[in-house]
Design a protein around this nucleic acid. Structure first.
Length: 484
RNA sequence: GGCAUAUUGGUGAAGCGGUUCAACACACUGCCCUCUCAAGGCAGCAUUCACGGGUUCGAAUCCCGUAUAUGUCACCA
């Protein structure tokens, strides 16, 4: 049988990195199987927490990442609908809940909040169970009578008082718990909606999910879900519980914290591919030493056995490094197409943007680093002659002035203003003057850019600036030095 | 508090009882290259795997206890 996995977010806000990683892993696990199916299911049973537009963010994010689902609300599929609120309308969960009651796996409960609180308090001292529902002892006939009479009710799971329940998790191994520690949780709320606990199990079964991929916060409730599978006599799925993605040692990434969301990462100039690449490795490690993977390559390399059990701290610095690797690894044409708008942010003038892109490609780790590097093209910044002082280059304003004058006269005579000619002409100067390359080219670079550091050397910048502008700036800088 | 899970350097991590077992990457430091900054190359960076016991000829690797962290105990998912 082919693998079927699902990503089942609830539309309560935007996608944060931990969620995305779960989606990614679920995708990878499905796609590892050539016949595998990846499903998107929207879990919106909590009507109170729905957030306008949240579903679209989910679609957009998945799309940007290339995580395309084979079945889902927008693309359809054989086991729809794929939105839980729509499934509720068919009465499906209620039907299964009644069936569960018949099978002894659930019962009606009429307790109000007050009695629950009281029962909890009474139980607190002598029992591990936080809530033993008094209604579990009602006879079905009596309960049915009260339901028919219109009394408000919920349906709760009935848990055996004795024994243990255990299951195997692909990541955490065999987990065993005492039934006495399990809550008789609500399955159907008083508004008739199923809770996550119930809808999830029913949907996973009905949709033929073979591998349940989800956060490890569900680890302790999984035995309860298995009890439901057993009561229905259904085959249980494989479980892959994922360790959390942490913000720091103590706290998980939260939606509140802006920089943890996918959209914010995009806004900060990261590539979707790089983000995906990086987060795949939060809690998972590939077999060899390779670290850069495309989505398809991740499918190939991914292996559940290498998922770790520890929470992984999201490290923006490492992400930046991975992003830089992606950026530098692109061919110039692709890179240019991607980066042109970012260059345009800073450079309005009529320059060869592709040449500028080439200079920037080896230096920028994120897209948003690009514009600030390029501010000197449009406007020649004012700068202090102090910039010419550089110990390593063995330069100072005095050396700079003589070098600049030499450059000025050499540059003036150049007819065809291209890189090779420029290179040839300028490289001849240090030899002629009997100084080191840096003592000529460093001052030149400062003189025409006005900046301590630039994405490109003197020759590249002069080429891009053009003859007229280069000489203009050079004159200004020479003048500034002479006035000192 | 009960229950569950985990604990390798600043970070992600490899390692799964014994052939350098403490890989690899980020970060950091130094050097090289170099017309700046980057990039790239090279080197350094845990006598030690939370702590304490035990098992074993031999443990980061198995067992027990302690500590710590996270999760869960909702008519939230």
């Amino acid at each position: 049988m082919s693998i079927r996995t699902r990503f089942a977010p609830s539309p309560t806000g935007y996608m944060h990195i931990g969620n995305l990683r779960t989606a990614l892993w679920a995708y990878l696990i499905a796609k590892k199987d050539p016949e595998g199916v990846f499903i998107l299911r929207i879990e919106d049973t909590d009507q109170g927490r729905l957030v306008e537009g949240a579903t679209d963010i989910i679609y957009d994010t998945m799309k940007q990442c290339g995580l395309s689902h084979d079945e889902g609300p927008d693309v359809g599929g054989p086991v729809g609908p794929y939105v839980q609120s729509e499934r509720v309308k068919s009465g499906l969960y209620m039907d299964y809940a009644r069936e569960l009651i018949r099978r002894g796996g659930a019962h009606y409960c009429f307790c109000d909040e007050e009695t629950i609180e009281k029962a909890k308090a009474e139980n607190a001292d002598d029992s591990n169970r936080s809530y033993a529902d008094p209604c579990r002892n009602l006879s079905l006939e009596e309960a049915q009578k009260r339901v028919d009479a219109g009394e408000p009710f919920v349906i709760r799971q009935t848990i055996p008082q004795e024994g243990t329940t255990s299951f195997d998790d692909e990541v955490f191994g065999t987990i065993t718990v005492d039934n006495s520690t399990l809550d008789e949780a609500v399955l159907i709320k008083s508004d008739g909606f199923p809770t996550y606990n119930f809808a999830n199990v029913i949907d996973d079964h009905l949709m033929g999910i073979t591998d349940v991929v989800r956060g490890m916060e569900y680890l302790s409730s999984t035995p309860k879900y298995n009890l439901i599978y057993d009561a229905f006599d259904w085959e249980k799925p494989r479980y892959i519980h994922c360790p959390p993605v942490m913000k720091d040692e103590h706290s998980k990434l939260s939606k509140r914290n802006g920089d943890a969301s996918f959209q914010d990462l995009m806004a900060k100039g990261y590539l979707p591919e790089a983000v995906l690449n990086y987060i795949a490795m939060l809690g998972w490690s590939p077999e060899g030493n390779r670290e850069i993977f495309t989505l398809d390559e991740l499918v190939e390399a991914f292996n559940v056995k290498h998922i770790g059990q520890n929470g992984a701290i999201f490290d923006p610095v490492k992400l930046t490094s991975v992003n830089g690797l992606w950026l530098r690894g692109m061919d110039l044409d692709t890179y240019f197409r991607l980066v042109e708008p970012y260059i345009r942010e800073a450079v309005k003038g009529d320059y060869d943007l592709k040449k500028i892109a080439a200079g920037v490609q080896q230096r920028a780790n994120t897209l948003s680093e690009i514009a600030p590097m390029l501010d000197f093209y449009d406007t020649f910044p004012s700068f202090s002659n102090d910039l010419y002082n550089n110990k390593k280059m063995k330069t100072n304003p005095e050396i700079a002035l003589s070098a600049l004058k030499e450059c000025r006269s050499a540059l003036e005579g150049i007819q065809s203003w291209d890189f090779d000619t420029l290179h040839e002409t300028l490289m001849a100067l240090p030899a002629k003057m009997g100084v080191k390359n840096g003592q000529v080219l460093f001052p030149l670079r400062i003189a025409i850019s006005g900046k301590q550091s630039t994405p490109g050397g003197a020759i590249e910048i002069a080429e891009i600036l053009g003859k007229e502008e280069t000489l203009r700036r050079l004159d200004l800088s020479i003048q500034q030095l002479e006035n000192e």
